[in-house]
């Protein structure tokens, strides 16, 4: 360990602001990069589920109405 205590570690002899802000920006960006394709995938799947179920329902309705006539 290069630092004696937490305050020392956070301050990094005056360079803390720079080091920590750089690491925070990188962390936020990485989290966003992982989250964004996963969120888009989730969105696509829900959309497709809705579409497929609607199509299935409509097909059933059609089949039902044709047999009743």
């Amino acid at each position: 360990m290069q630092f004696d205590n937490l305050a020392d570690f956070l301050q990094m002899s005056g360079h803390g602001v720079y080091v920590w802000s750089a690491y925070i920006i990188v962390t936020i960006t990485i989290v966003y990069l992982v989250w964004s394709p996963l969120a888009r995938k989730r969105r696509i799947i829900t959309e497709q589920q809705r579409r497929l179920r609607r199509e299935e329902y409509e097909a059933q309705q059609k089949a039902g109405s044709s047999t009743s006539i």
């Binding site: 990094m12 803390g16 080091v19």
Partner: peptide, 9 residues
């Protein structure tokens, strides 16, 4: 000093 630690990212 410590500013070089940015190198790791």
């Amino acid at each position: 000093g410590n500013s070089y630690r940015i190198i790791y990212i």
